[in-house]
């Protein structure tokens, strides 16, 4: 089996994240204390989700320009894995919030709008599940995909920054401020983001290949019968 370089890069970066993320120095900050290391795991989930949803949008647009089963499969599977990343992001965020903010659901603007963004994407799956006609499902969900992505951007990146938020990087001042200013943390954070994004891409690509293989088998059956 030929193993692509990016898969090896993904493994190396994730192992590096686990080891360096636990062992390297981090700034000594009150309240967050040692939990600051969750930055290497919680935040990349969201980066991964945005990346996967972007890929999903890209294939949805490709579908709308030139309808085909392949692009619909791509769009759907990227969205599926993206949602998994988002759910993991929100669960890890709740665990972290429980420790640093005092309760798992604090009604923080970033937390609320992230949840709304996930609900918008959940509706995408409900829409797909409610249609039995393949072509209709592909077309409607591609259109909805564009809407969902456009709704997600302000929910994650604009609204939380316009109000005060306890979530770092919000409340008027983007970026990680005190956290990300630390160059030692960047040494782990950026590789972690790339590693987790590659993992999401890898899982999505496996699911896409499986679906495409299924599709090809169906076609072969069809040819035999006709």
């Amino acid at each position: 089996m030929k193993t692509s370089g990016w898969k090896i890069l993904c493994v190396v970066l994730l192992l590096y994240t686990a080891v360096a993320g636990l062992l390297l120095d981090v700034p000594r900050l009150n309240i967050v204390n040692e939990t600051i290391r969750a930055l290497y795991f919680h935040v990349p989930m969201w980066f991964g989700m945005v990346f996967l949803f972007s890929m999903s949008l890209w294939h949805a647009i490709r579908y709308l320009r030139n309808p085909s089963i392949e692009t619909d499969i791509h769009s759907f599977e990227y969205a599926t894995v993206g949602l998994v990343f988002g759910v993991l992001g929100i669960i890890t965020g709740m665990i972290w919030a429980n420790y640093t903010w005092g309760s798992p659901w604090h009604g923080d603007p970033k937390q609320n709008s992230a949840a709304i963004a996930l609900l918008v994407y959940l509706a995408y799956f409900i829409l797909r599940g409610s249609l039995s006609n393949d072509e209709q499902r592909a077309k409607l969900s591609a259109v909805y995909n564009v809407f969902a992505f456009v709704a997600m951007i302000p929910l994650l990146f604009i609204i939380p920054r316009m109000t005060s938020s306890m979530h770092p990087g919000n409340g008027g001042n983007p970026g990680f401020n005190a956290y990300d200013l630390d160059s030692k943390m960047r040494l782990v954070f950026y590789p972690a983001v790339i590693g987790w994004i590659l993992l999401g891409y890898w899982i999505a690509s496996l699911r896409i290949r499986l679906k495409l293989a299924e599709e090809k088998l169906n076609e072969l059956e069809h040819e035999k019968n006709s």
């Binding site: 089996m1 898969k7 899982i203 496996l206 499986l210 293989a213 088998l217």
Partner: peptide, 18 residues
């Protein structure tokens, strides 16, 4: 990750068969 690699290989084999 090892599990993922095995799944990857399985799918490659399936693609070849098809």
């Amino acid at each position: 990750i090892t599990f993922l690699f095995f799944t990857d290989r399985k799918i490659s084999r399936l693609e070849k068969q098809i």
